[in-house]
């Protein structure tokens, strides 16, 4: 069980949260111009990083707010929690005033049903 520090509510059990998959996946700027390969990348391809991974979480049974997390996918250590719309803290962009990319609108479902 992960212990997740919600930016609004503080430390809560993982069971209060919903996973949203990879962070920083912007909706295509010119959807009409995308070809099939580009659409497949947007719809079906997500990074599957072994190591530090930027991902989205929703505090579904608390404040119901989304936020981003940098988490190691091997040790499961949570390295940083940061607001949606800001760049990942370990990226060069984070040190500049770059507002970062808009959050994506689809969340790849991880769980099998």
């Amino acid at each position: 069980m992960l212990l997740i520090s919600c930016p609004n509510c503080g430390s809560r059990d993982e069971t209060e949260f919903h996973y949203g998959g990879q962070a920083h996946v912007p909706y295509p700027e010119n959807p009409n111009e995308l070809n099939d390969v580009e659409w497949s990348r947007y719809l079906f391809y997500r990074e599957n990083t072994k190591g530090a991974f930027a991902e989205r979480w929703l505090h579904s049974t608390g404040c119901r707010q989304w936020f981003n997390m940098l988490r190691d996918t091997v040790t499961y250590d949570i390295q940083a929690i940061y607001p949606m719309g800001t760049p990942r803290p370990d990226s060069p962009a984070a040190t500049s005033s770059n507002p970062g990319t808009k959050p994506g609108t689809t969340a790849p479902e991880g769980a099998t049903k």
Binding site: M1, L2, D13, E14, T15, H18, Y19, G21, N48, T49, K50, F53, E55, R71, T73, V74, T75, Y76, G110, A111, T112
Partner: peptide, 16 residues
């Protein structure tokens, strides 16, 4: 069980 919702390469999951 079902999968843990998060991406993971550790050969372990959450107890819940």
């Amino acid at each position: 069980a079902g999968v843990d919702s998060y991406n993971g390469y550790g050969q372990r999951g959450s107890f819940h």
